[in-house]
Structures are given as C-alpha cells and as structure tokens.
C-alpha cells in the first residue's frame, strides 16, 4: 500500500468516529476498568496518526459528540472539555507525525503520541479550569490535578497505540511508514 487516498482517509475517519462510540461500550463489560483506559482516546489518536491533522481534528470533535448522542457517555457536563481534549489529540498527533521523520516508525509514533497527549491534557485541564473556576491559583491546581490523575492512563495509551498501529501495518490496512526497500 502506498499512500492513503482522500476517500480512504475519509472512510477510515468515519470508522474511528464509530469506534469512539463502540469502544467505550465494549470496555464497559470489563470489571474495574474505571477511567484508566480512556477507550475513546484511542481511535482519535490513531486517526490523527494515520490520516493527518484535519481528519484527526474531525474525529476528535465528532467522536465524543456522537458517543454522547448514542450512548449518553460522556455526560453533558464533561462533553465540552472532552471535545477540546480529543480535538487537540487528533490535531497534534497528525501535525507531529507530518513533521517528524526519524526513520524509525516506533520513534515517530512515540514522539507524536507524547506530544498529542501532553497537548490534549494541558488544553483540557485549562478549559476545565476556565469553566469551573477562576483565579490563577485554582487554574494551576486544576491543571496539575488533572494531569497527575491521568498519568497511568497516558502510559496505557503509549503501550497500546503502537501495538495497534503495527498490527494494522502487518495486515496491510494502513501504509507502512518506512518501507524496507529490497537490495
């Protein structure tokens, strides 16, 4: 597979948006899953990594909205900050993947993921602070508390997303980033 066509990217984005609705439900069946897995984050990050920033952005906005409409999760109170967080994920992941080429797919993935997760959490923490509090102290407190509690979840995303990306590459469903040329 060479490059993804526009249509392929569009339909893959649609698939990722649908997964934003379906994955949280699938994880619901796992006992003690809690907030640690953040299943809605995975399709958005993947969409940004694979399809680029415009599609990642769309996925980040449409995913939580559709999920809220169809399953009621996330609830109204968290929806705006979720949209902002996921939009930041899709956008950043796509942008960084576009500009970073270390010749090693794994490195590219990690750099993009870390950048995206950081950007997303910071932006989401800030938006929550703005909505729910005011005054400089509380703003910082909000952001840091959000960050610290989110750390285990971040590590899980870092472990899972490359595994998914490589499986997709092997199955020839997404193009290989650095194809090994013969000879």
């Amino acid at each position: 597979m060479k490059q993804l066509t526009y249509v392929k990217k569009a339909i893959l984005t649609a698939a990722c948006i649908a997964l934003c609705v379906v994955l949280p439900m699938a994880f619901h069946a796992i006992p003690n899953a809690g907030n640690i897995y953040c299943p809605m984050h995975m399709p958005v990050l993947l969409c940004g990594l694979v399809c680029g920033w415009p599609f990642g952005l769309l996925c980040g906005v449409a995913g939580p909205v559709l999920s809220s409409l169809f399953t009621g999760m996330p609830s109204m109170a968290y929806l705006p900050s979720m949209i902002i967080e996921l939009a930041a994920y899709g956008l950043t992941a796509g942008l960084v993947m576009r500009f970073v080429h270390t010749k090693k797919t794994m490195a590219d993935l990690y750099i993009s993921l870390v950048a995206a997760l950081l950007a997303g959490r910071i932006v989401a923490g800030a938006s929550r602070a703005l909505i729910f509090a005011s005054g400089s102290y509380s703003m910082e407190a909000w952001i840091t508390s959000y960050f610290v509690t989110a750390l285990p979840g971040l590590l899980i995303q870092l472990a899972l997303l490359p595994a998914i990306a490589f499986a997709l590459e092997k199955a020839r469903l997404i193009p290989v980033r650095y194809p090994r040329t013969a000879g």
Partner: peptide, 19 residues
C-alpha cells in the same frame, strides 16, 4: 495494557477492514 490487547487490536482490525 497487555490484558486488553486481545480485545482492542482485533476490534480495530475489523473496523479498518470494513472501512
């Protein structure tokens, strides 16, 4: 992360295949 891979990876594969 490892315990959830058998669920997540096939779901993504199936979804991308359909797409």
């Amino acid at each position: 992360a490892g315990s959830v891979v058998p669920l997540v990876v096939p779901i993504f594969l199936a979804a991308f295949r359909r797409a």
